[in-house]
Write a protein that binds this DNA or RNA. Structure first.
Lengths: 155, 155
DNA sequence: TTCATAGTTGAGAGATAATATCAATAAAAT
DNA sequence: ATTTTATTGATATTATCTCTCAACTATGAA
């Protein structure tokens, strides 16, 4: 495995070591900058932007160069460990999570719920028949107010 | 109505005058640059980027400043006459069309089908119950190969 | 038709998101 | 411990898009 990771395993949250192990398994080196980004992404939870990752890291005095933050985000995305969130306007947010997933995003505060089953299978079948396309991917994102923002707006 | 539009109605495609009338009705002036962008968007059909609009216009020697192209795209979008297409990667394409709509985009050639009914109502109800969110908007986009690209890839 | 006015335009500066370059560095294999 | 090779970071660059503001023009009123 990764010597670098083993040396600091004790000091890292399990979620971070877990992700780092997947980087190693995929043949990538486990480096300081990459661990830093993983720490930030894990700590921020939910939907975060590259800028927010950077701010979190700067605040702790351990920010890699911005290029490496982008590179790590891209790498996690390529390995399907990170999903890009497509907002109605904003398309520059991400969420940790394995494989295919969808998001329900609060337009008030940015909170987010992930869900797996989006029930578009029958729509896909229907459209394949009607249009002759072979559909291989889909994007489903939902927007609204979370319970807290809902309560606040009612007051 | 718009004096400017009436004076050139004869020289414009109906799809363009139709859109221009909607600008006028909404209280916006019908100007040369705006008509030019409408012509480009109508001519390009399907999914287009701002850059493609600009290229089309430059090729005909009637391109407004890039700022005005962006402004017109934004205006059409605000009036719900233009939809932004969210690709898996690319989020900078648009499609003419009124109101709420979804897209089935060919990952091979960029061709595109619009569809209205996306059948996520029951998913929305389900998630509202489970999460307590009040869902007010959604994004559904599908990707695959169009019949032509499918045939080409089989060969 | 002409005029006044208020909305619109365009050039260029600037903001933001992201990538490219490449010498220096550090993790991993030996 | 040394070698090898991936990775990093500073900087420049590109792409997308917005801002500013003087000049302009479509529109409504006269």
């Amino acid at each position: 495995m990764s010597r670098y990771l083993e040396a600091r395993r004790e000091t890292l949250p399990p979620a971070v070591t877990d992700l780092a192990e997947q980087l190693a398994e995929a043949g990538y080196k486990v480096t300081g900058p990459r661990l830093a980004v993983l720490k930030a992404a894990t700590a921020l939870r939910g939907a975060f932007s590259v800028h927010e990752l950077e701010q979190w890291l700067i605040a702790r005095g351990e920010s890699p160069g911005i290029a490496s933050i982008f590179r790590t985000v891209r790498l996690l995305s390529d390995l399907n460990l990170l999903q890009r969130i497509h907002g109605l306007d904003d398309c520059h947010r991400y969420s940790l999570g394995k494989g295919h997933g969808h998001h329900l995003v609060c337009t008030g505060c940015g909170a987010m719920e992930r869900f797996e089953d989006c029930g578009v299978q029958s729509l896909i079948q229907q459209l394949e028949q009607r249009t002759g396309y072979r559909i291989s991917a889909h994007l489903v994102e939902l927007f609204g107010l979370c319970p807290r923002c809902l309560a606040a707006s009612a007051a």
